[in-house]
């Protein structure tokens, strides 16, 4: 990963760690239960949660598996996640590692399950991360990735990337469903299944979570208001008295397996 960019990611998430850990939208979600259905975790499983952020995915899976290793590039958010999981009580099988998703510090075949939720759009080299995910998964291991889904329409996709980058400069890019499938196949995975979810964002909460100041929120609000009718329709942008109240986008769950031994 590019060193300067990596530093910016760490600054961004050190600054906003508390918002992410306390965010209700991350704590819940039908995407987590759908991921569990496709991973089918057991008490024999060892799960790696890459880019754990607020630790919500690690916490969700901890009671369902033997051990969880939660990794993230940012120490500050790992400490917050550690506090958060400790406050929940009764969870003693989660450990934390500061690590880069593109250079994972684990031997080959260390994990039987791998999750990565709402994070790959921050990775400069997703293909490299996927090769690392493949390497650290045991043969027959299962992976569930959840991330923002890039719309297929180029005009809508352009609006999407612009607004995400205005909100958070560490947003690299999201991918369409077909781009995800191609990348995951190229990394060597099989049995690829996908499922889409809609997510409605409270605009003010969403903007503040990324640490935008008042001026930044106003600029982003204007960018939404001025969006094309097509973008308004696609993202179901809701406004009141010139203020954006909410918008809705899609998340993609991708489940895949590392092939069994030959």
């Amino acid at each position: 990963m590019d060193k300067g960019f990596k530093e910016r990611v760490r600054e961004q998430f050190s600054r906003t760690a508390e918002y992410y850990v306390r965010d209700e939208g991350f704590a819940r979600g039908e995407d987590l239960s759908a991921a569990a259905r496709c991973l089918n975790p057991t008490q024999d499983d060892i799960l790696l949660d890459v880019a754990t952020g607020g630790g919500h995915t690690a916490l969700y899976f901890a009671p369902l598996v033997r051990n969880v290793v939660a990794s993230d590039l940012t120490m500050q958010i790992l400490k917050k996640a550690q506090e958060f999981i400790s406050e929940e009580g009764g969870i003693e099988n989660v450990t934390f590692r500061e690590a880069d998703a593109e250079d994972l510090p684990f031997p080959a075949g260390s994990f039987t399950l791998l999750t990565c939720r709402i994070a790959p759009h921050h990775f400069p080299d997703v293909k490299r991360s996927l090769r690392e995910f493949f390497r650290v998964l045991r043969r027959g291991g299962r992976m569930a990735i959840i991330d923002s889904l890039l719309p297929d329409d180029p005009e809508i996709a352009d609006f999407y990337h612009s607004m995400e980058k205005m909100r958070d400069p560490t947003h690299v890019r999201a991918y369409t469903r077909s781009e995800w499938i191609t990348m995951i196949e190229e990394a060597g995975f099989i049995n690829i299944h996908t499922k889409e979810f809609t997510k409605t964002h409270d605009f003010a909460t969403w903007a503040r979570r990324a640490g935008l100041d008042r001026q930044g929120v106003q600029q982003l609000n204007k960018f939404f208001i001025d969006a094309s009718p097509k973008a308004h329709d696609h993202f179901e942008i809701e406004t009141f008295a010139g203020e954006v109240e909410s918008y809705t986008d899609k998340k993609l769950l991708i489940c895949a397996h590392r092939p069994e031994k030959k």
Partner: peptide, 15 residues
């Protein structure tokens, strides 16, 4: 040598 801070190993080559 990778430092351990607050019980968390910092497994980053840059660090």
């Amino acid at each position: 040598a990778y430092p351990i801070r607050d019980d968390i190993p910092v497994m980053l080559v840059d660090e």
